[in-house]
Amino acid sequence: MTNKKFRDTDMQSIIGWILRAGVLISMSVVFIGGVVYLYRHGQSHADYSKFNGVPDFVHNTSGIFNGIITGRGRAIIQAGIILLIATPIIRVVFSAIGFVLEKDYLYLGITILVLIIILASMLSGHAG
């Protein structure tokens, strides 16, 4: 592996691996949370006909964290969903690293721009 330049094919296999691992891990977490949720709330009444947001304990980081510790299924599911949403974003971060190694600064700029847009989206959602 000495003196071997980082190439597009290397980037392809790393990106492929990240996407696969991200989906596998996050969906396993969602599945585990789902089992816990059904075990605890299987007989409750399901009603989604009126929009009233989500329960507080799955709406912020500390709530989700506490929920996981106390074994609440929906908090575990939500953590899995957040991991899933993070997967393509992590892929973009790794592409940026790849473009640095390839010394492709035009595409490094493009990739960073995409990350800035996602960040802006995250912040704008918070404001509203």
């Binding site: 947001g53 969903i81 957040i82 949403i85 993070a86 997967t87 393509p88 974003i89 847009i117 996602i118 989206s121 995250m122 704008s124 959602g125 918070h126 509203g128």
Partner: peptide, 10 residues
């Protein structure tokens, strides 16, 4: 993912 981060917070 770009729109999911908004939906998540809403």
């Amino acid at each position: 993912a770009a729109s999911a981060v908004v939906y998540l917070q809403r």
